[in-house]
């Protein structure tokens, strides 16, 4: 104790980028260690291991793997991000009287959402590597599969990224935004139900409105009766440019982050400008994708 009480020079504090970086790293650690995030990753390992064991490169529809990313990382990540965002409400006065304001913490939480996005990228890379080693085949092998052999690589990659890692980023960003605007316990559940509902609703609509979704499904899988039994096929949905859908979804991610940051009064004008730019970008990308 005597050593602790010995005078030591007070370290000058640093504001701005170094503080944001330190806070983002701390939030990223909290995200990566959250039990719900780890549970999603653990469950995700099961189909990945199964795919390796079967050596089938992802089967007749390799894009199914993106569903696991979207649900196990994106949707669960929504809840994790919501919980991390609202967690400091328990220490409200301590957080309130610290020099780093809430908007800074929101920005750090948005940056921490790169953790689930990175996990989504890892799974997407696994899907690519898996398919490169054991090329995916239809059932029977003559049936076509929506993959590199049949479609432009850029379309397949854009579809994979849009339905996988971007969903893993967008869910948590939306979780931060919902937590900032509705910081009560049940809002995470309400948010998840709304998110799933809003994702599923357009998928039943006729094209092109079916792509106006938080997780637009750009792959069709269908079964046809063949001579030797059912034939499983998958194809990219015609009439849509996956690259522009990817741009549309990235703009939605940006809008979620801006919405979260707009909860606090600081920097409203540039944030509104960024939000307007992203909204225009989202509309533009969507129109380019479907026309």
């Amino acid at each position: 104790m005597s050593a602790a009480l010995a005078p030591t020079p007070v370290t000058p504090t640093a504001e701005g980028w170094p503080t944001l970086r330190a806070l983002a790293v701390a939030e990223a650690r909290r995200f990566a260690r959250h039990p719900l995030f780890l549970l999603g990753i653990a469950i995700l390992l099961i189909p990945m291991a199964d795919s390796v064991i079967r050596q089938n490169g992802g089967g007749a529809n390799p894009m199914v793997g993106t569903l696991y990313i979207a649900f196990l990382i994106g949707v669960l990540g929504f809840v994790v991000a919501h919980r991390l965002t609202t967690s400091l409400l328990r220490s409200r006065d301590l957080a309130l009287t610290a020099p780093v304001d809430r908007q800074y913490r929101t920005l750090a939480l948005c940056l921490a959402c790169l953790v689930p996005a990175l996990a989504g990228v890892v799974v997407a890379v696994f899907m690519l590597a898996n398919a490169a080693i054991w090329p995916p085949v239809g059932d029977p092998p003559s049936a076509s599969v929506a993959w590199f052999r049949d479609y432009p690589a850029v379309d397949v990659l854009a579809t994979l990224v849009a339905m996988g890692p971007v969903a893993a980023l967008g869910g948590p960003l939306l979780g931060v935004a919902v937590a900032r605007w509705a910081p009560f316990r049940g809002s995470a559940l309400v948010g998840v139900v709304t998110l799933v509902f809003l994702t599923m609703l357009p998928s039943e609509s006729p094209s092109p409105w079916r792509f106006l979704s938080a997780w637009p499904v750009m792959v069709n899988e269908y079964v046809k009766e063949g001579e030797g039994g059912p034939i499983v096929r998958s194809s990219l949905v015609p009439g849509v440019e996956p690259v522009w859908i990817l741009g549309f979804l990235l703009c939605l991610c940006g809008l979620a982050a801006v919405a979260a940051l707009l909860r606090d009064p600081e920097h409203r004008r540039p944030l509104l400008g960024a939000g307007a730019g992203l909204a225009v970008g989202a509309v533009g990308c969507f129109l380019l994708a479907v026309t």
Partner: peptide, 29 residues
């Protein structure tokens, strides 16, 4: 500041909580 009552976010150890508060007080290094 020591408020009259305060809760703690779940998952923090003693060190990590004080460390987190130190970041909020701009100790970036």
């Amino acid at each position: 500041y020591v408020p009259q009552e305060t809760g703690f976010p779940r998952g923090f150890t003693t060190f990590s909580f004080v460390d987190y508060m130190a970041i909020l007080k701009e100790w970036s290094d």
